[in-house]
Design a protein around this nucleic acid. Sequence first.
DNA 1: CGTCTTCCCATAGCTAGGCTATGGAAGATT
DNA 2: AATCTTCCATAGCCTAGCTATGGGAAGACG
Lengths: 114, 114
Amino acid sequence: MGRRTENQKIEIPPGTLYMLILKTLANGQMHGYGIAQRIHQLSGEVLQVEEGSLYPALQRMLIKGWVVAEWRPSENNRRARYYSLTKSGQKQLGAELSEFDKVISAIHRVIETA
Amino acid sequence: MGRRTENQKIEIPPGTLYMLILKTLANGQMHGYGIAQRIHQLSGEVLQVEEGSLYPALQRMLIKGWVVAEWRPSENNRRARYYSLTKSGQKQLGAELSEFDKVISAIHRVIETA
DNA sequence: CGTCTTCCCATAGCTAGGCTATGGAAGATT
DNA sequence: AATCTTCCATAGCCTAGCTATGGGAAGACG
């Protein structure tokens, strides 16, 4: 209804969440909340990772063995769970990055050919 | 098991199928089978749209009103259903293209910042 | 001190939209 | 006749997003 432009929410495209999380963790240990903030910030406030997407994803990544977790107080003295990449997670990151590149360029070829 | 590099199958990333189909139809009427072939070809044989993905997607697009369909014999004299874009479909294509651009650049910002 | 905000985690239940598997009909090829 | 290719379509599965909801603990503010 408003005349103002709605601050349109942008979701992450399905399939890229793991990659974004893995990449973020490649810089070092981080807790979930921080991961979401960092992705939001690095993307220029465009990407928004919902908590209901993030935590389930992290659980799946634990099960897959891509990350390990450790409880530790945060910088703000709250209880937080810090995640870090395993070898397997690093390998996965590499695979996802190159797959992403390959697929995105293929898509570009399609949508640029009129 | 083989020593040869498997011709690894690449799926289209969820969320981009509509865009690829819409874009393909922007060049004019085409039947389903042809759409899949064209996407495959334009992508440099990288993207592979499965029939089990394509036809349900086309049905959904009919319901959404992005395309209309017409039965007509194909170039090979087979029964074929030709799809074409509606106004609404053209609008949707534009929206998906610009959204895609926006999100992909945001993702690049994240994965390029180490 | 009570309340609010911020930080941080987590799950249940829904939904969209891919996939595999399957089936069928009709023309072309051998 | 048998097989291949073209063309359509659906059922049933699964991944992985989402919203909605809940809670606990720290710090700020009145």
